[in-house]
Computed example of a mutant assay.
Amino acid sequence: MRDVPAPAVPAPAIPSPTRVPRVLRRCALLCAALALASSCGWGTGDDGASSRPLPGAPTGVTAEAGSATTVHVMWNAVEGAEAYEVYRGGTRVDEVPAADRMVDVTRLRPSTAYAFTVRARDADGRLGPRSREVRATTPAAVTDDTPPTRPGDTRGRAAGARAVRLTWAASNNEQGVVSYDIHQGGTKVHSVGGDRTSAQVTGLRPGTRYTFTVRARDAADNVSPAGAAVRLTTPGSDDAEATAPTALRASSHRADGAYYIDLSWVPPRGDGVITEYQIELDGRAATSLVYGDEAPRERAEYSFYAGIQAGVTHRVRVRARLSDGTWGGFSAERKVTTGTGG
């Protein structure tokens, strides 16, 4: 019996020397195109965030010592910002919502120079560039239990439709006044150094009535009584409709033997996130709603007790507290009857 030779197996094809470079060139061009698309945000499959520009660097940044252990930092609003991060040197020391644009940096050392910068962050969590660096030096620590005297002769005038100019007489204190705090209603909105007796408050609304007071602060963080209130109305007309919540919906439900009114609305668009609302029931303020860091941006919801009786028709509307500390316009009024679901 003769041995039968095994069938020949063809050798694998080897690209010609002229074909290999062409294939590599095609791969290189494809990789370069993919890299370019990724860097430009094309074809990334995300929600479009990468196509939006980053927030700009905050401008108008100032820093003033508030006491031996605090510095007050302020800045102008940045378009598209949802929050701001404040840095001392390279360390982030605070974060505030976009409506604030100011912060008191605390727990500092007396007689120490500090440098601060601010960055804006958008709704997608992206940080813009740092602001210019500003510096402030805290004064020496003192032992003092006596607050400064109240600022005197407080006066004010409108400085256009969106700003006011305030002046006052200097306070007295044995250890000296380090800063003056300006309050709008019950909210601190501005601060200037202790050698100043005037301030300009910006970011206001036209045709709106404001009440301002001034307090002095010393190095030991003692705060004076408030000076006389200054009441001013900015010129122009207040567009209440532009500051009102929209798309208000109202219904009712029953739980545990009682009826509740369920509301939802779209927050007004403006400078920063709205964190406080007032709900009016049958022409009277019924309740206030205060959100924390998780304030809704697209649609807010709230449910509150309305009584135990069915068939009662209520009128409801909502308004928001704006970044300047005032209340915006009311939403359109809605009627809701307990026990009917709407």
Rank of each mutant, 00 (worst) to 15 (best):
156 G>V: 13
185 G>W: 08
223 V>F: 05
120 A>Y: 00
220 A>L: 09
146 T>C: 00
216 A>M: 13
178 V>W: 00
147 P>V: 05
225 P>L: 04
152 G>W: 05
204 L>N: 14
209 R>V: 15
195 D>S: 07
195 D>A: 03
226 A>V: 06
183 H>E: 11
194 G>Q: 03
201 V>S: 14
173 N>K: 04
219 A>M: 11
131 S>Y: 05
163 A>Y: 14
187 T>P: 02
194 G>R: 00
144 D>P: 02
208 T>K: 13
117 T>W: 03
221 D>Y: 03
119 R>L: 04
226 A>W: 07
165 R>T: 10
133 E>Q: 07
175 Q>D: 13
147 P>K: 04
218 D>R: 02
169 A>L: 06
217 R>D: 10
146 T>F: 01
179 S>Q: 13
206 P>M: 14
186 G>M: 07
127 L>G: 02
158 A>I: 11
198 S>C: 03
207 G>L: 13
174 E>S: 13
143 T>C: 11
223 V>K: 03
227 G>T: 05
215 R>T: 11
190 H>S: 15
150 R>Y: 05
211 T>R: 12
121 R>P: 00
208 T>D: 05
148 P>Y: 07
137 T>G: 01
158 A>V: 13
155 R>I: 00
154 T>K: 04
133 E>K: 03
159 A>K: 15
197 T>D: 14
188 K>A: 10
204 L>D: 09
139 P>L: 08
125 G>Q: 09
215 R>D: 00
123 A>C: 02
178 V>N: 01
215 R>M: 03
180 Y>F: 05
214 V>G: 10
224 S>Y: 06
125 G>L: 10
182 I>P: 00
218 D>C: 01
186 G>Y: 03
192 V>D: 00
190 H>Y: 15
180 Y>H: 09
140 A>R: 13
199 A>W: 08
199 A>T: 11
201 V>Q: 15
189 V>C: 11
157 R>T: 11
201 V>P: 08
138 T>K: 07
171 S>K: 14
195 D>E: 09
167 T>M: 06
118 V>W: 08
119 R>F: 01
207 G>D: 14
189 V>F: 12
161 A>W: 05
127 L>R: 09
158 A>H: 08
203 G>M: 09
194 G>E: 05
143 T>Y: 06
130 R>S: 05
121 R>F: 01
228 A>V: 14
135 R>D: 03
181 D>A: 12
